[in-house]
Design a protein around this nucleic acid. Structure first.
Lengths: 218, 218
DNA sequence: AGGCCTCCTATTGTATACAATTTGCCTGCG
DNA sequence: CGCAGGCAAATTGTATACAATAGGAGGCCT
């Protein structure tokens, strides 16, 4: 994606997830063009992408609205992630070279450092977490799988989940990754898939329990 | 998608899968605009979609080429379909109402009629088959799942597979659907998922064995 | 003669003007 | 008073002109 389109995508996404717009409210291409600081053409491309990610929805008459994510939507997202990233972990276990596993371990050391102290560094955690998961997806060597996951994994949801994690939750996350690495070293696809599944399902429950307590991040 | 964009999508797709263009060859937006009979703007939208379906690929410098589908690509597509449509079948088994199952049965009667005679009607088969699978995906009530499958299920591949089916293969396909319906009536998600998995995996093997025999349709 | 630099061309990216469609209102008629 | 019809405004869709960028060819210097 090219400069202006990418910028439009990033800005509009930030705009949508910043919490200042109400789900269900209508948006126009022109408004979004102003938000992004570019013309309608690249905005339309960004909108297409945001539509496939279901952050925007279209009325039958092609008008655009801010999507309203229900608990079922979140559940659906995590369920599909569990299935697809579980599959990715399985394939990765069959394909990862020792050197690549070393690299994963290094990333996870970084993640450990971010959360093992007294005051966890969420930003560092998120970054290492993203790199870790992306590396596994990459190692699955399945381009369609990668593409589908890229569209499914809404980092803002991951962020919101991570902010609800207790210090202990964060450490458990790091330990899940440790176990994943152990499964990779053992070359055990079933183990890898199972650990990944549990890891993501727990994330889902952390997310919804925080949500049910009337949370909003801060 | 709007008139010109939709038309561009359909025409370009037909152009790509018509076999007259060579995988790996470069295409320009202007060429495709001419093929589609519209301007570059809607063509660009269609191209985006064809990129996500991986019928087109982009070079690092944003130039566009006809994708070259390897056996592994086909395998990957069927594997993901098996996983996701299996999931859809499971969810459908938990949700389908008796009336909806009746409707499925009706569609499959049409499919039976298309293949049970001496000279199978492939077009009728394909149409009923598509409706049948789409109805199941719809019944899963999972919008993201539906979207991902829409992007994964390349009807032209389905067509090519169907043309390689023997009369007996076609009848077996119809019988698979019968069994799926039985699983739905029984409300047995595991059964539904298993049948769907086998159904699609067999389709994959029909496809590749035909492919390996140096086939191309006609 | 070979390699590098530059200019030209081909191609994609963006903006804007214009066309088509839809919505909501307002008026007029029953 | 309510409903239908149509008009006007808002919004999305398409075409085209222009800008930016990448690739390739040709000439120049060593």
């Amino acid at each position: 994606m090219s400069k202006a389109s990418e910028q439009a995508y990033a800005k509009i996404r930030g705009f949508l997830l910043g919490g200042t717009v109400q789900p269900g409210s209508q948006l126009t291409e022109e408004q979004l063009a102003e938000v992004a600081g570019v013309s309608r053409t690249p905005v339309r491309e960004a909108m297409r992408r945001l539509e496939t990610e279901m952050l925007l929805v279209r009325s039958p008459s092609k008008r655009i609205f801010v999507a309203d994510w229900s608990r079922d939507d979140i559940d659906e997202m995590f369920t599909l992630r569990q299935m697809l990233e579980g599959h990715a972990a399985r394939r990765a276990a069959e394909r990862l070279t020792p050197a690549e596993i070393d690299r994963l371990e290094e990333v996870n050391r970084e993640l450990h450092e971010a959360v093992d102290g007294d005051t966890p560094d969420i930003v560092r955690f998120l970054d290492a977490n993203r790199v870790f998961h992306e590396a596994i997806t990459e190692a699955a060597h399945s381009p369609r799988l990668g593409q589908v996951l890229a569209m499914l994994v809404e980092q803002p949801v991951v962020l919101r989940t991570a902010r609800q994690y207790s210090a202990e939750d964060l450490k458990q996350s790091a330990r899940d990754h440790d176990e994943l690495i152990a499964a990779f070293r053992a070359g055990d696809p079933g183990w890898a898939k199972a650990v990944m599944g549990g890891h993501l399902r727990r994330a889902f429950h952390t997310f919804v329990s925080a949500d049910e307590n009337g949370a909003d991040g801060d």
